[in-house]
Design a protein around this nucleic acid. Structure first.
Lengths: 211, 211, 211, 211
DNA sequence: CATGAATGAGAATTCATTCAT
DNA sequence: TATGAATGAATTCTCATTCAT
């Protein structure tokens, strides 16, 4: 039996992933300026030098984190197979998904806020992101069309406005949960409050699309 | 006769205000961690030392900025005299106000995001804010009641959920304008896009409240 | 009586000068890449931060050092009032000056070498340097002209080539004194060796210019 | 059948040479402190580990480069077979050689400058170098003697001073070509300027040695 | 012999804050 | 009240070198 070495196993892909995960947390928690490279390295149990080796510098690491975040949410949503659902069910599923995804991935909200603080200068460089989202809007358009044909949805709803609205009502509630809980003097994130809000959101969107 | 001093005029209140304004811009632009005390002082044409004199330190300055921001939006909204309007008109006015205020005060959005990144720890200390917002929810409740009595509004709408929803659909659109413009491949802030969104928002809310 | 404060006296001009002097030594000793900002600050008994405050960064500090070095040698040479001397005396004085200046300012040699390693990219930015040297070449031209008129100098000597040659024979000897002492197995910088070389140099140049 | 390896061919001597060449370039370009081990390895298309395997460390590699450089210049000069030439032709050939060698091997100049910055501490360890140069001075002595006997050279010229002077006037011109071109506001390395300087140098040396 | 991931020491630079005037 | 020089603690980033495979 030998004493285990303190050195990291030589698994570059693993190391890369650990750094990326650690960075996601740190950037979400502190923003780009507030995040500490040291903290990222420590949490990743990686040598700080590796961050520069794999990602160039702090800003490029942030960019990679942003890219991955946007790819992940679309990839999760694709798994829902929404196209196979009835129009109303499809819409409701999307509202639920939006709520649940933000709930399970609160870093996503923080990262998007950070990226907007930086005027989306990192996202601009990510071609893949644009392509992935075109499909998303088309899918929404298709759902709306089907609903209109079935006589259950209103005509002439802009799919982009709808997509934005669905995101808004979950996003805002959750991203502003701290200031909101103070201003409204209630715990916006208690299980009951959560359930209530999700229902309210589904209602809001269905009233918006149904004829 | 004395030689005129190159120093700043000794108007303490003025200096304080200039610092506060400069800080608001800088914090909105860069967040708490990214903001630079030097930049704030320079833009305020004040000596850096004055910041510490008047506000203690960077973080307390941030807190003051946050407080002022929340007081300002409610003070602006109060000037609308919404209680005197018809229920539908009142609601529409609030939706418009929400949109316009964010448009004219984009720093507000950035500051609120920053404050939530910091888990509202600065806002927690501001007693005044809580009081001011209680009034706001009560006013919304009163509008809803009147609408219900007139038979034009649905019953049992939670004024807090409504207030949050009204804010959401304007806030999200504007705070995420940079990432949104990339993802949806359109300029979300062109005059036409703005008009379209405001209409959509009014529609969304009216469908939500009207019976 | 009070205990003297460990803090530096608040004399900005003094601080600047101390940094510049310290930097000159360090850059001459180690080159741009080998020099340490910490060492410069320590030797200047200044806070490292002051280097960035006064000079921007390491490279800009280097640039300032180079500029000053070139200005200093010309300023020293101007004090010789060479134009008032007889042609032969003038030439001999210049050869002596060249030798002595390098001897008393060995950093100059090292700095010029460093700057050439960096392809003169710092000197390029210094307009003053060019102006100062134009005057130098003109002065040499005037000396040569007078010598020709008096029938003691050869005609058609390019003043620039002469200036370069005068510098060469002192510069090379001194800047390569370490490798030279090894290769030639003698101490090139012993007092006797120095005197011998200076005589040799004067002889070399007079044979070159005299008819 | 085996799958061909992507590795470098296992030719140790070749690898060593590639590293040495790459190092020469890098050290000449950046100096000892500024040179990067990574860059040397990359340019040599060798693994960084090989540098340590063959040369120990960065400094020992530098030492080897310096040694080789000094051996090369003397070896090139020996090929001239100067001893077989007439005294004047011999001297002129040496002046030309000095000029041409520096021109074709600009790294030599930079390396010598670097080594002097480091007070020749690497050269000191190279016994071979000393031996080789003893021969060089003896050869110069012999040429001078022959010239004196033929009545064409002056008596009592120190061969070491002459050797140094011949090197000086080419070396200085070329090593300071960047700062020189700025200071004198002319391109010192244009073909015309080069030809002119070489002629000037030959003239300078012949006037020095001829009686 | 060859590879390239990993490391730790250190270097440049930044920044909020304090102090002498 | 006002100024701006000075400070020290971080923070990002770099680099020669070593180790597992």
């Amino acid at each position: 039996m030998t004493i285990s070495s303190p050195r990291q196993k030589r698994d570059p892909e693993e190391t890369r992933k650990r750094i990326l995960n650690s960075a996601k947390k740190e950037f979400a928690l502190k923003g780009l300026a507030g995040a500490r490279v040291d903290t990222i390295a420590d949490r990743a149990k990686a040598n700080k030098r590796m961050i520069y080796h794999y990602f160039g510098n702090k800003e490029e690491l942030f960019q990679k984190v942003i890219e991955e975040a946007y790819l992940d949410i679309r990839s999760a949503e694709k798994k829902l197979n929404i196209v196979q659902l009835e129009p109303i069910e499809a819409i409701e599923t999307l509202v639920r998904f939006s709520w649940d995804y933000y709930l399970k991935n609160p870093e996503f909200l923080a990262l998007v806020n950070s990226e907007n603080l930086h005027r989306a200068r990192h996202l601009k460089k990510a071609q893949k992101i644009i392509e992935v989202h075109e499909g998303f809007v088309l899918m929404m358009k298709e759902i709306l069309n089907r609903g209109v044909k079935l006589g259950i949805f209103r005509d002439n709803i802009d799919p982009v406005q709808l997509v934005i609205t669905i995101a808004s009502i979950s996003y805002y509630y959750q991203t502003n949960r701290h200031t909101g809980s103070i201003i409204f003097q209630r715990d916006l994130m208690s299980p009951e409050a959560q359930a209530e809000r999700l229902d309210f959101n589904i209602d809001t969107i269905l009233r918006l699309v149904c004829s």
